[in-house]
Write a protein that binds this DNA or RNA. Structure first.
Length: 109
DNA sequence: ATTATGACCCGAT
DNA sequence: AATCGGGCCATAA
């Protein structure tokens, strides 16, 4: 499979994240086929094609830590959106993965 | 084709 | 718990 396909797959998965749930970069990378490409995944979110189809704000670090955001006020906007979505926060810039972590196996689409 | 950078992750100190 | 360093992958210049 080409790397270009990998990127598209990541976008597909990212846009598949249900509202009120969040996924980690490593998780997206793993689902896309490259468990070690967590870094590249972050770059895909950064250079995402359309913020409306790809819910990049629902992507957080492995420990639920908010890393970055290219739109709005950055992490501030990202955090705000997540709260509006119904995601529970554990700290200032941390998401409660225990309750808001997306389970791709259950989503099936 | 090579070098440099980054919205990451993990292990060790 | 916090900090430091190394490794992996894809993109941009």
């Amino acid at each position: 499979m080409q790397t270009s396909s990998f990127r598209q797959k990541v976008y597909s998965i990212a846009s598949s994240i249900p509202k009120g749930k969040v996924a980690t970069y490593g998780q997206l990378a793993r689902l896309a086929g490259n468990p070690r490409a967590s870094r590249a995944v972050g770059m895909f979110m950064r250079t995402n094609p359309d913020l409306k189809i790809v819910s990049c704000h629902r992507v957080v670090g492995s420990n639920g830590k908010l890393t970055g955001y290219s739109a709005g006020e950055g992490l501030v906007t990202k955090k705000k959106i997540l709260i509006l979505e119904g995601v529970k926060f554990s700290g200032h810039d941390r998401v409660d993965l225990s309750s808001s972590l997306w389970n791709p196996s259950k989503s099936t689409n």
